[in-house]
Write a protein that binds this DNA or RNA. Structure first.
Length: 445
RNA sequence: GACCCUAUCGUCCAGCGGUUAGGACACCGCCCUUUCACGGCGGUGACACGGGUUCGAAUCCCGUUAGGGUCGCCA
């Protein structure tokens, strides 16, 4: 399916990609993919002070991480036919439109700056999300003429935004509701330029749990934070889709292809949404649980490498990841869950040692089980379990008296994957050695 | 202050004139499991308030209140 729909995400470089911005980009992207139209990225860098290479990079990184690929814009082999896609490089275009407005008498000078003279009428907006809204702009006190050019020649957002949307042939403008009140002014500009305005869709804002506006410092505000904490991009994207949109049938964990086919502008809520990190966390766990081992390994690798775990080859990693995968909620937890599989320098959790290893008789039980394990024919999950249970009967203790000390002695932790699977992957030699070492250290105390 | 938007469990989302107001997260029980999770079952918990319209209103209208947004030579 293809169409003439053209939508854009037009961020200004601020050094990070805000979840609100990411969600706006996402909805634009969804609409483009749903309609078979084009998704355009344009960098609104008219504010030279904040405009840095790193700040722009953060936008690319965030969008790419979320899988929001753009069809026209920076960083592409073929940027597209309506470039440049940086406002800082579009001076000539703005000048042309500026002269056009001036010649038609829409502009007047004010202290070196240039203002647009409002026609002072009622402007009616047919918003795809908010419906029909009329704005009475007749009072200059409450609706002053907007400035479009500074005395230093710099351009103002309202003007360049409209000019670019005209030049880049946008059919729909999907943006945050914070622009709703600016829209009648933009429409006046379109009309003065003799251009039919695009269709507008103002999407609700994302707020904090307490209803306050989300700022850079708030938990979950920056996309970079999700990357660092080990969220799966598909999970965050899924969660963001649910903020203001739903498939209307109570389903929540949805494949992106299905979301694309179901997504549409009129189905977007009008109510602003509070950001719920708990739910995002839950969705992430669902994705981790359901994803393939290969994908899990791919996403885990950066965290494993960063922790400096010497795993040898990726093949050695797979069996370990396979048994911890279902336990993990955040990818950044992976190193702590797998470290003891790749190093004998096991970190012992003080509380776990205290509660299980230091119990009376633990050393003796570990040695007894270690001896049975050393003599075991087949090192399999089934044999490991049967032997442990038989040993417990022999010793006249509950199986837990064996399971817990064994777990802590080999992994240093009281939580982990299923014990028998863990031992199977760890191997006989290391298992027995670690159990005996722990027993010896306990005896020496 | 003016203008604009919004108002269903703590949070997200269903509901679009007749429902015991549904699902999810979180929370609390129980089950499963001798770790931690997953999973299963159950529970607490909402139509902001006041007027209309209607046989009948969470749903439509008006007002009040509350929250948010805009009113820049920021974007």
């Amino acid at each position: 399916m293809s169409s003439n729909v053209r939508v854009r995400f037009a961020p200004s470089p601020t050094g990070y990609l805000h979840v609100g911005g990411a969600r706006t980009a996402l909805f634009n992207w969804l609409y483009a993919r749903h309609t078979g139209g084009k998704f355009i990225l344009r960098i609104e860098d008219t504010d030279k002070a904040r405009n840095t290479v790193e700040a722009t990079q953060a936008i690319y990184d965030g969008l790419r991480w979320l899988g929001l690929d753009w069809d026209e814009g920076p960083q592409l082999e073929n940027e597209g036919e309506y470039g440049p896609y940086f406002q800082s490089e579009r001076e000539a275009v703005y000048l042309r439109y500026f002269e056009q407005l001036k010649a038609a008498g829409h502009l007047y000078e004010d202290g070196g700056a240039w203002r647009f003279r409002s026609p002072r009428k009622t402007v009616v907006l047919e918003d795809l999300v908010c419906g029909k809204i009329s704005f009475d702009l007749s009072n200059p006190m409450t609706h002053p003429d907007i400035t479009i050019r500074r005395p230093d020649g710099g351009w103002i957002f309202h003007f360049v935004n409209v000019v670019d949307d005209i030049e880049m042939k946008m059919t729909h403008v999907i943006r945050g509701e914070d622009h709703l009140s600016n829209t009648p002014k933009h429409i006046e500009l379109y009309q003065a330029l003799g251009v039919e305005p695009p269709r507008f869709a103002h999407i609700p804002l994302i707020l904090n749990r307490d209803g306050s506006k989300m700022s850079k410092r708030d938990q979950g505000a920056s996309i970079a934070g999700y990357i660092e904490q080990g969220y799966a991009p598909e999970a965050v994207r899924n969660y963001l889709c649910l903020l203001g949109w739903s498939p209307k049938d109570n389903r929540e964990v949805l494949d992106i292809d299905e979301i694309i086919s179901l997504f549409d502008l009129p189905k977007i809520n009008r109510r602003s949404a509070s950001f719920d990190l708990d739910k995002c966390y839950w969705i992430n766990g669902q994705y981790l649980l359901q994803m393939s081992l290969d994908r899990f390994a791919e996403l885990s690798l950066p965290f494993i490498d960063k922790a400096g775990i010497a795993y040898g080859s990726p093949d050695a990693l797979k069996p370990v990841l396979a048994i911890v995968k279902e336990k993990i909620k955040h990818l950044n937890e992976v190193p702590a869950w797998i470290g003891y599989f790749f190093s004998d320098a096991v970190e012992f959790d003080a509380e776990a040692v205290e509660k299980t290893l230091r119990k009376p008789g633990a050393a003796g039980r570990l040695n007894a089980l270690a001896a049975r394990y050393e003599a075991l024919d087949a090192w399999t999950v089934e044999a490991l379990e049967a032997t442990l249970k038989a040993t417990a009967v022999e010793l006249g203790v509950k199986t837990g008296e064996l399971i817990h000390p064994t777990r802590v002695s080999v992994s240093g932790r009281s939580v982990g994957p299923s014990l028998y699977h863990m031992l199977e992957v760890l191997g006989r030699e290391r298992t027995v050695r670690r159990m005996r070492k722990a027993a010896a250290e306990l005896a020496a105390e």
